[in-house]
Design a protein around this nucleic acid. Structure first.
Length: 803
DNA sequence: AGCACGCCGACT
DNA sequence: GTCGGCGTGCTC
């Protein structure tokens, strides 16, 4: 007996286990570990992953596997183990972990059909439904409100059957190719017989005589300015034959050819860093390097050369880049160095493109992958190096199931492959730098910029003073002067506005009423395009009111705002300036991001105004002024990392100015110029900031001195949510050690989302080996209530945001 | 998650 | 009787 151990595609606590299925004879050779299979489950059919093959099972009423969905395994043994570890580590379901490791295109798609089995007269409603067809989509029956009991009777009578179909969403793109189908003699004979007027046919044959190789049909038609008809005629005469060929979708095909680059000469601090990494690489040992290099110190070149060494050893490399920094500029650097050895995985690709890039990795056609978070799961089997660029970025933490931090996964994979990891940043997290100082990570420092220019001077503009001086605009006098100056000199400017805490809410100027979402405790944001108000959390929307819903005053306006309003203000103050705005609205369309940056690069604009997305990796030689419009917008968030995030952002943004020949200047507008994060950022003093922030973290018992766990309890009834949270706190108090600090129950920063009230409990601890077991028990205890009573308990081990 | 099964109240 | 709504338990 051949048995497969299968994890089924049902993300629920009750089904989060391994199921046994027998493998029928005809599938013995077809099914391997790591493949997707279709299995019967209850009375339906679903997808599952094969984890193991054995020859015995303790299960009595075991069923047969229905079929295989793959020809070759899509998960390696290492990745299967990693998935199990990930699920256990993050307290998620196995299936969620495996799904997170694969491209969307490989997810199963379920269709339910009604199949008519007999010609006997059915119930009239059913007869009307089938309308002469044998098969139809079950959805249609539901939509047409066919009485379900009648359907049931028909099924019991054997007249109708419900059938289930499992499809994979992946599609392999194929194009039509054409090639010669006859030999020389036949062709010559054909040409002799060909009429004088058949000019095009002759041309086509001549083409193939000159290049006897298959060519995409489309290209042939373009090149010879002919039509499908002519080709078809030759095909009918047996001269040519068309066939389908598999191709990769190429998201970069319309772009200029990327120039190949050779390794650049390194400066001493770069060689030293590289030397340490390469040494480790040769020793074939796992180990974490923290590469602390100021912006413009040449970290990327170190990455590139380290990868070069890994490839020489015949190994593979994974490079992780925050989604937002995965710009064409960045991708180009890797493609320039490693050419067709590179696959790129990021969310701007379509599902099909992502799948194709993934397939290149799976088929061993590339050895380098550059991508966002999920690229850590690249199906390589001989990894030589893993690089995490901008390691402090919060996008490396996945905020829904499985809630993992990519660093933890990277460290696990590095152990599996015995290879080094490089964490690179100008502003490492407190956690990483503290570990490096303790000697747990190898610390590599690159304190100098490559260009001769010093870091740009930072001026702090105190917005309180501006207000006192009667300046009520968004631009301080200092910034206004600087902008005018650059416009005159024909140099470029980057203006940065942090969107968070600065959104476009609508309020009444008379009574101050702010329009809120009816389902969530959050203000609605204004969308000019459709004149609507929208909720970011639950997608609720309503029309922009003409009058205040509270006091009926008609002075209701959208307020604050992000980039749109700044753009208007810019045009008022500097009518001659050409502005490019980059935010979610202007970059929604595919390729828009790239196009806008190219325009700015070609000096088609003077000012680039944008949100987070322009803070990273931009490198334009003529940018000599960077303005930060609201430096403290992050500081006021309820988050113990607020100071750290502010420091990181300011440092990052400042790094965009004066990168080449021209010197740069930064103007930071703030209401709290004395705050240490802003002060240290203005001085580029990472170490000073680190010391002060660490002292605070220690005093308030935050990471890295303490670990944290965030438990969020959601329920439609606020009393119930609070009660359950209180109970959980009590349980934790009882079962964890004396040293664990348990905070709560307290309402979450956003108290209600999608009509569910949210309460939280935070555990701060140094060492709690029992925590995992206790939390599992808590989840088990509430399992019933979660199923039956709309209760939700979310557990985030080491949360990045306390929301 | 779906799906069946069973109990219950409402309706023609 | 007949129909549909919900609570409950199960899926190799």
């Amino acid at each position: 007996m051949k048995v497969a151990k299968v994890v089924v595609d049902v993300p629920a606590a009750q089904t989060n286990k391994i199921y046994d299925y027998t493998i029928p004879m005809h599938l013995h050779d077809a099914i391997e570990i790591g493949m997707r299979v279709i299995v019967p489950f209850g009375n339906r059919k679903i997808m599952g992953y094969v984890l193991e093959l054995t020859d015995t099972s303790a299960v009595e009423r075991i069923k047969d596997i229905d079929s295989a969905m793959d020809m070759t395994p899509i998960l390696t043994v290492e990745l299967l183990e990693l998935g199990k570890w990930l699920a256990e580590h993050t307290m998620s379901f196995y299936i969620s972990a495996f799904q997170a490791m694969l491209p969307q295109a490989l997810k199963a798609n379920y269709v339910k059909y009604l199949h008519r089995l007999s010609e006997d007269q059915l119930d009239e409603r059913l007869e009307a439904l089938f309308a002469g067809r044998d098969y139809l989509d079950y959805k249609e029956a539901v939509e047409r409100d066919v009485p379900l009991h009648r359907l049931k009777l028909a099924i019991q009578a054997g007249d109708v059957e419900i059938s289930y179909q499992v499809n994979s969403k992946e599609t392999i793109k194929k194009i039509a190719m054409i090639k010669l189908a006859a030999d020389e003699e036949v062709i010559d004979a054909y040409l002799v017989d060909l009429g004088k007027r058949a000019k095009k046919k002759r041309e086509i044959i001549n083409y193939f005589q000159a290049n006897n190789a298959p060519i995409p049909l489309k290209d042939l038609l373009n090149q010879l300015h002919t039509t499908r008809q002519t080709v078809k005629a030759l095909e009918n005469d047996g001269l040519l034959v068309t066939f389908k060929e598999e191709v990769y979708r190429n998201p970069y095909q319309h772009r200029k050819i990327i120039e190949a680059t050779a390794p650049l000469p390194l400066r001493p601090q770069q060689s030293e860093a590289l030397g340490a990494i390469v040494n480790q690489l040769h020793q074939k040992q796992a180990g974490v390097f923290l590469l602390h290099g100021v912006t413009g110190s040449g970290k990327t070149e170190v990455y590139l050369q380290a990868i070069g060494h890994a490839l020489e050893l015949n190994k593979e490399a994974i490079v992780l880049v925050p989604e937002i920094a995965l710009t064409p500029q960045m991708v180009e650097r890797f493609k320039g160095r490693f050419g067709s050895e590179v696959a790129v995985l990021h969310s701007a690709l379509s599902k099909g493109e992502r799948f194709d890039e993934w397939r290149k990795i799976q088929r061993k056609e590339v050895r380098v992958v550059v991508g966002a978070r999920s690229a850590i799961f690249a199906p390589f089997d001989n990894i030589g190096i893993i690089i995490i660029d901008e390691e402090h970025e919060s996008s490396y933490k996945q905020e829904d199931h499985p809630r993992y931090h990519v660093k933890d996964v990277a460290i696990k994979r590095a152990e599996n492959h015995q290879c080094p990891i490089i964490l690179g940043s100008a502003t490492p997290t407190m956690e990483s730098y503290a570990r490096a100082k303790k000697g747990l990570y190898h610390l590599l420092e690159m304190p100098d910029r490559m260009s001769k220019n010093a870091m740009p001077t930072v001026h702090l503009a105190d917005m309180r003073e501006e207000l006192h001086a009667g300046n009520r605009t968004m631009f301080s006098r200092q910034l206004q002067e600087a902008i005018s100056d650059r416009l005159e000199q024909n140099q470029q400017i980057v203006l940065f506005l942090n969107r968070r805490g600065y959104s476009t809410f609508v309020s009444c100027r008379d009574c101050g009423h702010v329009v809120q979402c009816p389902n969530c405790d959050i203000s609605l944001t204004y969308h000019r395009k459709h004149e609507t108000l929208k909720c970011h959390y639950c997608n609720y929307q309503e029309r922009m009111p003409q009058q205040c819903p509270k006091c009926t005053s008609d002075t209701i306006r959208y307020f604050g705002t992000g980039t749109q309003k700044v753009e208007e203000a810019l045009y008022q103050t500097f009518p001659e300036a050409r502005v490019i705005r980059m935010d979610v609205d202007t970059t929604r369309k595919k390729g828009a991001h790239e196009r806008l940056l190219a325009q700015f690069g070609n000096k088609q604009a003077d000012i680039l105004l944008g949100t987070q997305m322009i803070a990273k990796g931009l490198d334009f030689p003529d940018v000599t002024l960077v303005g930060v419009l609201a430096a403290d917008s992050l500081l006021n968030l309820p988050d113990f990392r607020a100071a750290e995030k502010t420091f990181q952002l300011l440092t990052q943004v400042s790094g965009r100015a004066g990168r080449h020949l021209l010197a740069g200047e930064v103007v930071v507008q703030t209401y709290t110029p004395d705050h240490y994060s802003i002060q240290y950022a203005a001085e580029y003093n990472y170490h000073g900031f680190f010391e002060q922030e660490m002292a605070l973290r220690r005093a308030f018992q935050y990471p890295p001195y303490f670990y944290m766990t965030l438990i969020t309890v959601l329920h439609p009834n606020p009393l119930k949510a609070e009660e359950v949270t209180r109970m959980i706190c009590k349980l934790l108090q009882k079962h964890l050690s004396q040293d664990a600090r348990i905070l709560g129950p307290s309402p979450s920063p956003i108290e209600r989302i999608k009509n569910r009230y949210r309460y939280q409990c935070i555990i701060k601890y140094k060492h709690e080996p029992k925590q995992h077991t206790v939390l599992t028990k808590v989840l088990n205890y509430y399992e019933d209530m979660m199923r039956k009573d709309d209760l939700l308990i979310q557990i985030d081990l080491q949360p990045y945001q306390l929301m």
